[in-house]
Amino acid sequence: MKKIIYSLFIGLVLMSCKAKPTEYELLLNTYQKPTDQWPKPTLDSTVAHRELGVLPSPKYPNGNTPSKALIQLGKQLFFDARLSQSKQIACASCHHPDQNYTDNRRVSMGAFLKEGRRNAPTVLNLSYKKSLFWDGRANSIEEQVLGPMQNPVEMNTSLDTVVARVNSIEGYKKSFRELLQKDAISIDDIAYAIATFERSLISRKSKFDRFLLGREKLNAKELKGLHLFRTKARCMNCHNGPLFSDESFHNVGLTYYGRKYEDLGRYNVTKKAEDIGRFKTPSLRDVMRTRPWMHNGLFDKMEGILTMYSNGMPRPRRRAHQKNDSLFPTTSRLLVKTELTKEDIENITAFLESISAPAFRIQKPELPE
């Protein structure tokens, strides 16, 4: 009997000595499950739940995967400065492959060393996007391609000039003839080739992707950041799905209405008062490699941006002369104070690092004479 009591006593001691799971172990156990078993994110009642995930294969028109030769042709045109009036500015001038297809400038420098008004977004992952540009004014990649060509502070050329120059280059004529059966190259053909190359540009697998695929573990900071991103910080109200974007438009309080840097955003396209100051939700994939941030490129420190979101973002107040101004901007109701701690911000930043893959270098193509 004494032996039985002693054995039970030893068992109880060993059980009491067994370490309780750490916070990291509990979170790891939770997030190593399939995503449909993850905790529900903190979402506004108006927001549908779209879980984070790995990007699917790129989408091409009619589901037709293009040949490598057609992608290469688009790549040549993407790097060809002869498409600009000065023959000095190419698509790649503002979208550098080794900078995740941005230029890491506040705003890009174009024709006559003029600066634009908005930060150059990455051209990675355009295949999944419904509309292009910060204000969504282009509904296809082909349409987007033609915008910078005609912009007087970017490539500053005319579409007729682009067509004439491409048709004058024997190497391009040969490629279009072989690949698209085109003897006379049109601007739509040129846009299609460049768009085909851009559709092929997909972010490399990030550490977070490898975690989802069961190939790597997130560390404690990254995992806490993931949980905060989905819950307390309310990030998934706008940054959701595999693209980390709802592909919608929101006013985050950075319209600078009536001041320097004023930009009315989506309103310039729709002329609807409710679109004042709304900009498209950028994808957060590779976000830590594409600084500076926001539509105006005025923010270069992620800690500062997360602090602003923690405080609910700016909410401009009407001045006396703006009392009856029907266009006065209103910051989105999705943005509320979350009171993130310094540790929270550090953890979310660590998670954002985990969804940011390093740039992949590509060889600059040889251009036809």
Results as ranks from 00 to 15, higher is better:
M15N: 14
K18I: 14
P21L: 07
E23S: 00
E23K: 09
E25R: 08
T30Q: 14
Y31Q: 10
W38I: 11
H49K: 14
T65K: 15
L70W: 05
L77E: 05
A81H: 01
I89H: 00
C91D: 02
C91F: 07
P97D: 00
D98S: 14
G116R: 05
R117T: 13
N119R: 13
A120W: 05
L126K: 00
Y128V: 10
Y128Q: 06
K129W: 04
K129N: 15
K130P: 10
R137Y: 13
E142R: 02
Q144H: 06
N156R: 03
R165Q: 09
S175N: 07
S186H: 06
I202C: 04
S203N: 13
S203P: 12
F208W: 02
F211R: 00
L212Q: 06
R215V: 10
L223M: 08
K232W: 00
A233L: 03
C238M: 02
H239M: 10
L243I: 04
F244D: 02
S245C: 09
F249D: 09
V252I: 15
V252N: 01
D263E: 15
T270L: 01
K272T: 10
V287D: 05
R291T: 14
P292N: 12
P292L: 09
N296I: 01
L298K: 08
L298T: 06
L298Y: 09
I305G: 03
M308C: 12
S310Q: 06
S310H: 11
M313N: 12
P314Y: 10
T330W: 11
T338D: 12
N347T: 08
S354P: 12
S356A: 05
A357D: 02
E366S: 15
